[in-house]
Measured scan of single mutants.
Amino acid sequence: SPEVQIAILTEQINNLNEHLRVHKKDHHSRRGLLKMVGKRRRLLAYLRNKDVARYREIVEKLG
């Protein structure tokens, strides 16, 4: 489901952010981070168009 995919991506994004705080010059990982953020944004847009209630619920849960 989109909610699960968004939750997994959010966790991976948070982990990668911590990694990049330590390894500032790791541009390869930064590119992966940007791809993940874009994918999460697309999934959220899809969910917002399909079911606003589910969209609001996941945004509330994940912050």
Rank of each mutant, 00 (worst) to 15 (best):
H23V: 03
L62Y: 06
Y55V: 02
H19T: 04
K25T: 12
R30Q: 06
I6T: 00
L9S: 01
H28M: 10
H19M: 05
P2C: 15
Q5A: 07
R56Y: 13
R21Q: 09
E3R: 01
H19F: 08
L16P: 01
P2N: 03
S29M: 14
R21L: 07
G63K: 13
L16K: 02
L33H: 03
N17T: 13
G32D: 15
D26E: 04
L62G: 02
V59C: 11
I13V: 01
N14S: 05
R42Q: 11
I8D: 06
L9T: 02
R42M: 08
R31A: 11
S1E: 09
P2W: 14
P2T: 13
Q12A: 11
R48V: 04
D51L: 03
L34V: 09
R56Q: 13
L62M: 09
I58M: 07
R41E: 08
A45I: 09
L33C: 08
R21C: 07
I8F: 12
D51Q: 02
R30K: 08
L44S: 00
D51P: 00
E3C: 06
L44F: 03
A53T: 10
K61S: 12
I6D: 01
R31T: 08
D26K: 07
Q12T: 05
A7T: 10
Y46D: 14
A7S: 06
E3G: 04
V22M: 08
N17E: 11
R56D: 09
L62H: 03
S29Q: 05
K35H: 08
V4F: 11
T10H: 02
L16V: 04
D26R: 04
N17R: 15
L43C: 04
Y55L: 02
K24P: 15
M36A: 14
L9C: 03
K35A: 14
L34Y: 11
E3F: 05
A7K: 07
Q12C: 12
E3V: 05
H27K: 11
L47P: 00
V52G: 09
L9Q: 02
V22I: 12
H27D: 08
A45N: 12
L62D: 04
L20K: 02
D26P: 03
G63N: 13
R56T: 10
Y46M: 12
E57A: 13
G32N: 15
V22N: 12
L33M: 07
K35V: 12
R40Q: 03
R48T: 01
K25F: 13
G38F: 12
K61D: 04
M36P: 00
K61Q: 12
E18L: 11
I58Q: 03
K39Y: 10
K61N: 08
E18N: 10
L16S: 01
I58F: 05
N49H: 10
Y55A: 02
I8Y: 14
K39H: 08
M36H: 03
K25G: 14
E57H: 05
L33W: 05
N49T: 12
Q12I: 13
V4G: 08
N15T: 12
R54L: 15
L16A: 04
Q5C: 11
S29G: 12
D51N: 07
V59H: 02
Y55W: 15
L33N: 00
V59E: 02
T10W: 04
G38S: 13
L43W: 04
R42F: 07
I58L: 10
N15M: 12
N49F: 11
L20T: 02
